[in-house]
Design a protein around this nucleic acid. Structure first.
Lengths: 136, 136
DNA sequence: CCCCTTAATAGTAATTTTTATCAATTTTAA
DNA sequence: TTAAAATTGATAAAAATTACTATTAAGGGG
């Protein structure tokens, strides 16, 4: 693993497959959805193991944990800076190219001085290309 | 009520007190926290009623439902545009003055054309003024 | 002011998502 | 090879939220 906090983590079969399967998709699966996929390769893996490994991988900076206000978390193995659009029609979560406006935010608020901002969470709700086409 | 969707809603004692108590605070309480406050005035109110009313008031545009990635929702009766900072030290959620950068986002992404953005969710994680002082 | 329709309520159960527990297993380093 | 420690599967528990239902009450029309 990359991160310092992960010196003592072991790359078990389960952890490796969880990471591999998450890297295969751009669908931003929930823990449960990923569990169903991983189960095809490791039929005996338990849901708790998937949750635990996603938590560890996220703490190590190997994957991203997303909360888009759905009452459940999603996961993303793409670590390049980008945003997310949640389509309110079909529920899909789609990558949105990064525009470095977070920096502007950070600069503006740092200038305000009374609190230290460590991260900016940004996401979008809207209608994806496919659903827009269906509506016309 | 203000909103069209709320023509048939009734301003019950419970709904009025939920709204009044939420308007009294800037602490961005969860449903459960607000339930504890409201209970002092209406000892027989049930948690489900608080949830239901917060949902309805939010659909009517009377209150704001916030999800800051904590695994639970918070509510805010302040409808003026502003952002939120969640202090990772003390857990408090603090209002951050509005800077109209959402518009910049919207314009930039509208120009991309392939999807229709209906809302932008922005919030900050960081350390609040009080916690910064304690750390020095 | 009193009905009457219907939304809303209290109380409770159920659901959903996530975390905790723990004995057994597996990994890794010495 | 062996022993310490991380990890696992299975299961239970926790936490947040939603669903259900008989009863109550809001509020508009007469």
């Amino acid at each position: 693993m990359v991160n310092m906090d992960c010196e003592r983590t072991r790359l078990t079969k389960q952890r490796r497959v969880v990471l591999e399967e998450l890297r295969k998709t751009t669908a931003h699966p929930t823990a449960d959805e990923l569990y169903e996929v991983v189960r095809k390769r490791l039929p005996n893996i338990s849901l708790g193991t998937v949750y635990r490994n996603l938590e560890i991988l996220s703490a190590c900076g190997e994957v991203l944990k997303l909360d888009l206000g759905e009452g459940k978390k999603r996961f993303d193995a793409c670590m390049e800076p980008h945003y997310h659009l949640r389509c309110t029609e079909c529920g899909r979560v789609i990558d949105v190219p990064y525009l470095p406006l977070e920096r502007e935010f950070e600069e503006q608020f740092k200038a305000m001085g009374s609190f230290k901002i460590t991260s900016v969470q940004i996401h979008f709700d809207g209608i994806c290309e496919g659903c827009l086409k269906k509506m016309n």
